[in-house]
Structures are given as C-alpha cells and as structure tokens.
Design a protein around this nucleic acid. Sequence first.
DNA 1: ATGGTCGAAAGTCGA
Length: 261
Amino acid sequence: MRIATWNVNSIRSRIDRVVSWLERNDIDVLAIQETKCREDQFPGLELSSMGYEFAHVGINQWNGVALISRVGLDDIATSFADDQPMFGDPALLEPRAIGATCGGVRVWSFYVPNGRELDNPHYAYKLAWLERLRQVGADWLAADPDAQIALTGDWNVAPLDEDVWDMSVFEGRTHVSAPERAAFQAMIDTGYADVVRPHTPGQYTYWDYQQLAFPKKRGLRIDFILASQALASRVDTAWIDREERKGKGASDHAPVVIEIS
DNA sequence: ATGGTCGAAAGTCGA
C-alpha cells in the first residue's frame, strides 16, 4: 500500500496534475494540504470517477485539507481535537486537520500554521497548535500502543540544518527556530518516527516559486510522514517526487510517499 | 537571458 502527502497549493488549479500523478504512481491514499477552496468547490468528480473516495474540509480561499483513498475512508474527523487551537478575531477553527481510517491505517492530513514571523501572533498559534497535537497524539498511543497511525502533511518546520538550503538566510525567521524544532522533535519523542528521512538523505520537499529557487536547489524539507511504531515497522521504502515540482503549473511542494507491506 | 512567483473571495494578502 502506498500513502502519500502533498501540499498542492490549490486543488482546483492542480486537479489535472493530481489525477495524473495518482494514476502514474499507483497511490492508495493521498493526504493533501492547501486545497484553497470551500467544500462545494472541491473537484471530487474527477477523483470519484477514478475510484477514489475523498473527504475535505475547507471554508474559504485559505488552508483546507483533504484525504483521498481507494482503500476505504472511515471515521472521518475534521479536526484533531475538540479544542484544536484557533486563530484570528473572532477566533476561527481553521481547516488544517482531517483524519480517516484507510486500509487499517489512521491517516491524518495536517497543514501546520506557517507562523509568519517570530513576533507575529501566528507564531504563538503555531506553537500552541503543535503542542496540542503532540498531546493528542500521545493520547492516541496511550489508548492503543499498537495503533497504526500516519501523521502526514506540511509541518512548516525544517527540523535540521541540513533541511535548509542556507541557514544564514533563515536566521531570525520561522521554520528553523528552536521552539519550532523542539515541538517537532517532541512529536518524534512521543512515538512517531520520521519514516521518510532514512530513505531520502539530503532531499528537500519545498522550493519557493520566487528567485528561481527550484533550479538553484534552494529548498527546504518541511513535509513529513510520521508513523507510529506499529506502522513504521511496515514501511519498506519512501521517496520524495522531485520530478513533480518541475514544469509549468507545478505546486511549490513535491509529493512525499511511503510504501508499506 | 544577467532577471525571474503564484493563487485566491485579487487590485491585497498569504505563502
């Protein structure tokens, strides 16, 4: 079974690429982020005609996450907790998390808040969001230590210096700050392993659209699949599809895939 | 060709 995550940066402008990519790569479950549309705007017909079920949560042009599966899509949750941190005035529950059980695996698609700048309220929101997710993730494992759980998505954190094309450029910026990195490491310490990194040393998942970042190899590794121990032991291989970042109409993120036995 | 983004409820904001 193949499980993937991909920040598509607008599903409506990318649906042809997504459909083609699913077909070419024999994907069973795809978690997507930044759908950037309301639920009534989601291009589901193209997916259902291919034999995929889908679940999406989106309320406006920002954020939005979805799950696409051809191995079942049960027990859909559109937030990771009833008290998932909110943002804005008035405080809004943003569509940044969706989970479902697909082929026996509890799969989550997360779009972690960006943080914007270190002194922006969005940064405190990001840290609160990650910490609450860690607590909930710990609860899931406490309830069932053998649970097969995949925490996938755009984490908006580059955990290691090697995940950043030039650390000097990111000094004093989000994605690399010590609290963000500690929050990401806390997820791993809670019992969710990064099952992609061992198979993809030195690779990035995101390249800015600006300044020809992609051809200049100026990228970041910020998209991850974290797996509970029971699931991690089934991972045979993983890869980052850098080819999908190429050409006209590409997302600024590449898909990340794991293959499990 | 010596600079250079993209998407959306666009004419500005978010990434």
